[in-house]
Structures are given as structure tokens and as C-alpha cells.
């Protein structure tokens, strides 16, 4: 009974984050803000949602917990990396940031590729 309660909590929280990311994706003006939203789902949302079955199947099938833990670790490892790569790709191909952005700290750090050939396809 307790397990089901915990699993339900984890599920609800996870889903909340997913929906928030969805809304973020839709309403945010440019790609950089959307990447920021995506980061949330990839890490916290998925983490919580994986915890749910781990908890639910916990006592009966221990192996699920192990694989779940492995999955969370791998997810935390890869999703930030993927989102970083996307952001880097957009920045170097000078994807236009939204008008309202004031500060661009990366200006003098990352070289912007001059050629436009395979940019914003």
C-alpha cells in the first residue's frame, strides 16, 4: 500500500514536469529557451518516472531496481550532453536569439562559423 502511494507520488511529479516542459516548448519564443525547458524533462521528469516502477516492483523483482538505477544514471549522463550539443550547434550557426535577450556572454568566447551553408536548414 505504501509502495503504491510512493509510486503514485513519483508518477504525478514526473508527469507534472513533463507537461511543464511541453508547455515550455510551445510557448517559449526561441530555441535557447526551449532547450532550457527540454533539459527539465530529460533529467528530473524521466528520473521521477523511472523511480515509479522501481518502487512499485521493488520487493517483488529486485532486478528492475538495478536496471532502473542504471537507466537514471545514463539518462543524467546523456541528456544534458545532448541539450548542450544542440545549444552549441545553434549558437555557432548564429541562430538568431529572441529580440528581448540583453546579455550575450558567449560573444567573445565561442567563434561563430562564418559560412551559412548548412546552418538553419
Amino acid at each position: 500500500m505504501l509502495l503504491e502511494l510512493l509510486a503514485a507520488l513519483a508518477m504525478l511529479a514526473g508527469t507534472f514536469f513533463m507537461v511543464v516542459t511541453g508547455i515550455g516548448l510551445v510557448r517559449f519564443p526561441d530555441v535557447y529557451t526551449r532547450i532550457h525547458a527540454a533539459g527539465k524533462a530529460g533529467t528530473v521528469g524521466v528520473g521521477l518516472l523511472i523511480v515509479a516502477p522501481m518502487v512499485y516492483f521493488g520487493p517483488t523483482e529486485p532486478f528492475v531496481a538495478l536496471r532502473g538505477f542504471l537507466a537514471i544514471v545514463f539518462q543524467l549522463l546523456t541528456t544534458p550532453g545532448a541539450t548542450y550539443l544542440l545549444a552549441h550547434a545553434c549558437y555557432v550557426t548564429s541562430y538568431p536569439a529572441h529580440a528581448r535577450t540583453e546579455v550575450d556572454e558567449l560573444q567573445d568566447w565561442i567563434p561563430v562559423y562564418p559560412d551559412e551553408e548548412f546552418g538553419h536548414e
Binding site: 513533463m18 511541453g22 527540454a38 524521466v46 518516472l49
Partner: peptide, 9 residues
């Protein structure tokens, strides 16, 4: 990318 996270969930 987010869709794949949603799929995992």
C-alpha cells in the same frame, strides 16, 4: 529529444 523522454515515461 523531449519526445523520447516522454516515451520513456
Amino acid at each position: 529529444d523531449t519526445l523520447s523522454s516522454v516515451a520513456i515515461g
